[in-house]
Every structure is written in structure tokens, then in C-alpha cells.
Design a protein around this nucleic acid. Structure first.
Lengths: 124, 124
DNA sequence: CGCCTGTATCGACAATTGTCGAGACAGAGG
DNA sequence: CCTCTGTCTCGACAATTGTCGATACAGGCG
């Protein structure tokens, strides 16, 4: 668990409190930096599928061996993408014995979902 | 209105129908490509702020002259970011006289928000 | 202990991206 | 018509990113 990841996690969660949708008011520049890091992490087809595979897997977690099977990519490349997602605060990894298991950070996904939400009523 | 943008818009709206959250089931590869293009467009602090500025502006639209003021970037650079957002299907631009006005595509934002939603409950 | 398997890191490379200045285009107004 | 202003396109550049093979690390098992 890298220090960098802890920083990212703290940053993402620090703005969970003021979770105004971006259609409500202009996002402050610092929040834009933190949020855009998470969106950029999702801005790759492989990483988006990785998050989906992990989140939808039985028990809410998946080991790397389950993930690499679905892609025509080398192990180091999958590992690299998992690292990007980790440092963006979107997933966490834990080693149990031989395998490493990943799960999503529900709060992070929820935060991003809220930011993009279109509130009903005010706008059309 | 470029042909490329029409393609992107069609792609994004084509998957609006099957808007399952990514925690529900693994995202098919083709959907991941389309969705990740939109997330990558949001994966830059400048573009995230641009979307927020446009969406939260009075009347739901903003002209480029309103947008450039908030950034320490050249005109061409802002124009480039707006083009990226346009081609991702997130905003649309319309020229009225001297100025070009941009507005967000609510359906596109809503689609992305749904994909990231955690709770399996019904959304409005 | 030594080996074998599963992940991660490192170093390198091509491809993509963010930024700018110069210049082109569109429309308003002389 | 010409000019001025607002926006976009083009070409160039440095920085970042996605990918790989080689290698290192971690843990189970002979």
C-alpha cells in the first residue's frame, strides 16, 4: 500500500462531503484536479473493464489471475493498469497467500456518479 | 457539426438503453471503448471545469468568451479542449452571430452517472 | 533450503496528448 | 469592399501514456 495511494484516497474522500454535481456550480480548480485523476483512470477501455470485472465478481473481489484471462495483454500491462486504478483511489488490493485480490472503493465510484448526476427539475 | 461528433453521439446514445451499472455485470468490450472515450474526455482538470462552467452557467449555455476568462491558457488550447468534449458527445456547440455557445448533453452525463452508480436501486 | 508460480517493478519504445504561435475562417460594422 | 473581433485549424514541440520483455519479489511446496 503505497503512500501515494493513501494520498489519493484521502483526496478523493476529502471531497466526498461537498458532493455537488458539476451542473450545479463551477467545480473549484483543486477539486477538478482530484476528480479528473479518477476520470482519467476510467478513461481507458481496459481499466474500465477491469473495474467492472472486479466490481461484478462474486464476493465483490477478484484476483489478478481472474482478470488477466479476459484480455490479450501481458501480465505487466494488466498490473500497470491496476496500479493506475489503485493510485486513483478506485480499487484496493490485498495479498492473501499466493494471490492478490482487488475490490472496488464504493465511495469513490459513488462520488464520481454524484458529480455527473443531472438533477431533475431545474434544468431540461 | 463534424461527422465524427455525430458518430460519437450515436455511439453514446446507442448504449443508453442498456445502462447497467458497471458493478452489476462486466462491461462488454465495445461498450467499454465508447464509455472510456467519454471518461477520458473528463480526465483533464481543464475539461472537467469547462463542463462544469458550461452546465452551471445561466441558461445552461456559455459562450467561449465566458470560458477562456477562467483559465490561464491560450485560446487555441481552450478550443482544443472543447473539441475533445464535443467529439466525446458531452457538449454541443452552436454559432449565433459572433459568438459560439456551448451546452452539455444531459443524456450523456446521465448515462455516465448511471454506469458508476453503486446502489442497484432505481434512479430518477 | 531451492524451485516454481503469481504479481510487481524497471527500462525502453512508439503512440497519444496538452500546449502554443501562426494563420484561416465567420460574421458584424464601417 | 476592408477591417476588426471571436473562434477554429494547422503544425510543431515536450510531456505523458500504453505496451512489452527482462527482472525482482513473495509465498507455497518439494
Amino acid at each position: 500500500m503505497s503512500k501515494q495511494r493513501l494520498i489519493e484516497l484521502a483526496q478523493l474522500s476529502s471531497v466526498v462531503g461537498c458532493g455537488a454535481p458539476l451542473v450545479r456550480e463551477p467545480i473549484p480548480a483543486e477539486q477538478a484536479v482530484v476528480l479528473s485523476r479518477a476520470f482519467r483512470a476510467l478513461g481507458d477501455p481496459v481499466r474500465l473493464r477491469l473495474v467492472s470485472l472486479i466490481a461484478s465478481h462474486d464476493g465483490g473481489e477478484a484476483c489478478v489471475c481472474d482478470l488477466t484471462a479476459g484480455f490479450d495483454l501481458s501480465g505487466p500491462t494488466i498490473s500497470h493498469h491496476l496500479k493506475v486504478l489503485r493510485e486513483a483511489g478506485l480499487i484496493t488490493g490485498e495479498r492473501r497467500g499466493t494471490w492478490v485480490y482487488y475490490r472496488v472503493e464504493p465511495a469513490a465510484l459513488a462520488r464520481l456518479s454524484t458529480v455527473l448526476a443531472i438533477e431533475p427539475g431545474v434544468r431540461a
